[in-house]
Design a protein around this nucleic acid. Structure first.
Ligand SMILES: [Zn+2]
Ligand SMILES: [Zn+2]
Ligand SMILES: [Zn+2]
Ligand SMILES: [Zn+2]
Lengths: 130, 130
DNA sequence: TTGTTAATTGTTATAATATAACATCATGTA
DNA sequence: TACATGATGTTATATTATAACAATTAACAA
């Protein structure tokens, strides 16, 4: 079997839902919403989420245990993500900042570690919440 | 009551344990270890962890749901953390890189957001695991 | 030193997040 | 065909975290 190009049924259903939201969704809220489409168990949701994260269609917001669609699927940032998170209204935005990316991409620590991935989360108050 | 300077009994017990480990510990593993000291319930552990995180004595590794002692309590980085994580052996190291800190501290997005905190996690393979 | 407040503790129950294990089905390839 | 791989469906369970409430302790001021 060759590497899958098209998403499976469950993966499509769940990606659709996440893409319709501009804010992160939690796994069990996704589960609730897709029950009407015949997806009944947490594992079905988590399997689709894992796959979608792996291929870069969505990202996990680690500090919130929630998943947001990537708006930038053309670039290679599936494994290099930056988010801003408002601690008041919980608004999350994916950040694409070239200078910052360059800086992080090239970062080397003093222990000879090779990085192939990073995740950066900024916290603060958004304009509305200041 | 004025701002607390000394840790409470449970906070001390749990900080002690975390400081003895150079690797992150999970809440329920901590709970298991401190049962002999009379701490019996998850909530007692989580309350102490919350406090210790708040005052910067420990950090949470968000992608691992685990807690590690800060070795650098003199500086103001309680709210600005950088870690390297080996995806093979799960070794975690806190990184203090002046140039990187400066870069992140000064970062402004194009939405007028004020950041007071960030967390960056690098993933890869450590020297031993390459 | 007594009343007041805030922080901490103890306890039981429960919520929220995530995975194990196993059976079945679909599809591409030898 | 038959074999391998990926996806699905299902039940049960593991792991992580919080709600709600009562009791205790520590600092402070009147
Ligand atoms: Zn993205
Ligand atoms: Zn906000
Ligand atoms: Zn630290
Ligand atoms: Zn390693």
């Amino acid at each position: 079997m060759q590497k899958q190009e098209t998403l499976s049924k469950n993966q499509k259903i769940i990606l659709d839902l996440i893409e319709k939201s501009d804010q992160p969704l939690k796994a069990y809220s996704i589960l609730f919403d897709v029950k009407k489409k015949g997806i009944n168990a947490p594992l079905q949701v988590y399997r689709a989420l894992d796959k979608l994260v792996e291929i870069g269609k969505i990202h996990k917001i680690e500090s919130r245990n929630a998943f947001i669609a990537c708006k930038n699927s053309k670039c290679q940032i599936a494994k290099a993500t930056v988010f801003s998170i408002c601690e008041s209204c919980e608004d999350v935005t994916e950040i694409h900042d070239h200078k910052l990316s360059e800086h992080l991409k090239d970062f080397k620590d003093n222990k000879g570690m090779k990085y192939n991935k990073y995740n950066l989360e900024f916290f603060g108050l958004c304009k509305k919440c200041v």
